[in-house]
């Protein structure tokens, strides 16, 4: 019995494999989508517990666009409106971004940010924390 199902959304297969090895090695089940459109298609079929979403993918499906669709939620995604989302950002991108979870959590469509390169410990800690929070019946932030 897996500890939870994680949907990894990134266009870099090597990066996805690195995350998959860490998560599977710690008892999680992983599925993968290479862009935002495929991620949205995969949701109803895979019903993941947590989504790890790259901020910007090759086909220019903006990560935030995907996240807002799920959060809003747009028709078809009602079941996932409370699914925790971790957003992956490029190196150095976070300091340049105008938002901050400590102040803007109310309107940001994601629960956590991880800046690349993803540290295994940080990824595991955040996935575990978010799963605990959502399973504890409390609403996601």
């Amino acid at each position: 019995m897996s500890k939870g199902k994680i949907l990894l959304v990134d266009d870099d297969p090597d990066l996805v494999e690195a995350m998959r090895l860490v998560l599977e090695g710690n008892g999680y089940e992983c599925v993968h989508a290479s862009n935002g459109t495929r991620a949205l298609e995969a949701l109803p079929k895979e019903k993941p517990d947590v989504m790890v979403l790259d901020v910007m993918m090759d086909d220019l499906t903006e990560g935030f666009h995907v996240a807002y669709k799920i959060r809003k939620p747009e028709p078809g995604f009602e079941a996932f409106s409370k699914m925790p989302i971790i957003m992956l950002t490029a190196i150095g991108q976070r300091t340049g971004m105008k938002f901050d979870l400590t102040t803007d959590a109310d309107y940001l469509p994601v629960e956590e940010f991880i800046e690349k390169p993803v540290q295994p410990k940080e990824l595991l800690a955040k996935v575990e924390e978010l799963l605990k929070r959502s399973r504890g019946g409390r609403p996601a932030l």
């Binding site: 990066l15 690195a18 090895l21 860490v22 490029a90 190196i91 150095g92 390169p117 540290q119 295994p120």
Partner: peptide, 19 residues
């Protein structure tokens, strides 16, 4: 940046014994 970041990440996963 992107490929170097992935190298860093893969090496860490290897070092930590996940592979």
């Amino acid at each position: 940046r992107a490929p170097v970041s992935t190298i860093q990440q893969l090496s860490q996963v290897m070092r930590d014994g996940y592979a």
